[in-house]
Amino acid sequence: MNIPDNLHYTSDHEWVSIEGDLATVGITDHAQEELSDVVFVELPSVGQAVGSGDEVGTVESVKAASPIYSPLGGEITAINTELEGDPSVINSSPYEEGWIFKIRLEDAGDLDDLLDATSYEDLIS
């Protein structure tokens, strides 16, 4: 199971990469493995204001639909439209090409709720 050290995680099996006040969000290797073949992704909208924990989209496999939550509050600044054409990128590259959306952070305090790689590994083991 791939859990990169440089990322932050949530108990909803999402990862967060922070650069300044900009965060990139996706689902973890464990989550894509549990879902198996991702066949559809419903993305949030650019410009959308979201609160921490809001449901902002959906990742669907053959058998199940799974909500995507925003781990942080702020404004959505980018979405990965490549996923609309080929959602299986989430399976093949969950931490790189399979990123889902970027968000401009409103409150850096939200970061305190995220897990580090070790805590996330404990959570799923």
């Binding site: 198996s36 073949d37 066949v39 496999s61 053959v62 058998k63």
Partner: peptide
Amino acid sequence: AKLVGFAGWEMPIRYGSIL
């Protein structure tokens, strides 16, 4: 296999990719 409950049995829903 990933095992799930089905009709009272623990059954494999998939081994890898359903597709």
